[in-house]
Design a binder for these strands. Sequence first.
DNA 1: TCTTGCATACTACCATGCAAGTATGGTAGT
DNA 2: ACTACCATACTTGCATGGTAGTATGCAAGA
Lengths: 270, 270
Amino acid sequence: MVVLTSESITPHSREADSKVRSTRIRSAIRGDFDQAQEQIAALVPQPLDPSRSYSAQIHAILRDPIVRGHLPPGAALSEASIAAAVGTSRTPVREALQHLVQEQLVQVYPQVGTRVAPLRVALIREGCFVRRTLECANLLDVVNTITGAQREEIRSLLSRQQAALHDGATDALFQADEEMHRRLFEFAGRSRVWTLIAGTKLHLDRVRWLLLDRIKGHAERILREHTTIVERLMANDTAGFCSEMQKHIDAVAVHLLELRSCLPESYFSD
Amino acid sequence: MVVLTSESITPHSREADSKVRSTRIRSAIRGDFDQAQEQIAALVPQPLDPSRSYSAQIHAILRDPIVRGHLPPGAALSEASIAAAVGTSRTPVREALQHLVQEQLVQVYPQVGTRVAPLRVALIREGCFVRRTLECANLLDVVNTITGAQREEIRSLLSRQQAALHDGATDALFQADEEMHRRLFEFAGRSRVWTLIAGTKLHLDRVRWLLLDRIKGHAERILREHTTIVERLMANDTAGFCSEMQKHIDAVAVHLLELRSCLPESYFSD
DNA sequence: TCTTGCATACTACCATGCAAGTATGGTAGT
DNA sequence: ACTACCATACTTGCATGGTAGTATGCAAGA
């Protein structure tokens, strides 16, 4: 497959220079839209709930498989196919796709097609910076105010992770992980900061799910790191906490390179 | 006008309990949708450019006046009115509004109306945390790698701010300010971190524009602080830089309280 | 064999119409 | 005077149709 570089094609730009793009690259944008329909249809769990917004439900249905890698970078997402798969008109599908565009999970090429966005190395690298910076800064405040009950809650979330790993339930492991980090922000009255991070975390999670499938013992490593981090937290060792947290988050960026060598180059960009 | 509290009404929730909301509060949601049309029409500079996406253009047309306070919190934004004002159908207007919803600048109450979101104190307070944390952390890296030319660029952006203040051009002042901060991230290869911050900065800017109108000498104070910050940067005094930057950004949160006393309570939330 | 041109089938974008839900103002009944 | 009710005029959510732009594959020509 021809590589889609972000230099050659800028999504949603109708500028004059779009005329001069080579046909060779353009043809890479279209292509396998045919298999899209059944691929999407398999993701729809059940008929949509008419009492809730269709757009929101479709957004959720699409986002999860993108982040988890079931819809790989470059996968075609045509409005009509998805609409047929979920059983609605194209309108709510379109709104869901626009939402995903803003999250930078898909790219729309006007009049051409919509595709799952590649893994953008720069986005991931900078996402690591944002996460580790905000989480460390937040923790410096939390350690001064944390209560015994809150300590206990964190500890219990860690043991939930251990149990999940033991059962091989990576879903539950990730969920407990997410909740642990979120709670640390809520302890400092910063729940909205976490929702901000959650937006950038989407891109880090795309890498993490891929790593989980390809790299042996990855889940074990995650849990080991979490354990170390919580130990530092319990010991009020903020410096140690920050350095461990930093290593833990930046591991995504480090392993990204390794991932790049065993996956199609078209999965990546930047 | 009746206060719209976020506890009483959750946007875009079609849950069963929506039936029990009191009529008194609901009636506050609708109301002055009549004056919306001409209010919006005054904001449209010229006919839209058909060669670019209508949605994006409408989004830009609406966002600026919201951030600047020309469309105050609570202002009605009905799809039909805006569509008539800009001369398109409701579809691209709808997409622009959805975009603004994601930026948390407007709230949509299904089947009731769409309004400019109030100034959310928590969002602003936590936005300050995000900005000061990321900007300080970024600068710790920048000071080690900054070149002479980059130093000169920052200095020139500061003098552009001085010139703008002298001319009373607050627009140009804000623009140069924004570019200065953005460049500091680009120096470290983190342009995407800045776009992330720009999203939270929207809410801080809403406060800043209001302050600029109400508080005498506010522009002068901003420039004074910028000057101090750049001085610290030039002197490689990173600790001083961070503390000044912190004061500068947190000033928004501090003055927010003061602003709350001289503006309708309905402008605020949380 | 290779290139060029064109019909065709797709795409996303936008316009329009309908449906479901909600606030408002007037009216009938108490 | 006051309350309950209902017609009406809004709102947003969704469905559908038309349009401009793009890739593809075939056919005609060099």
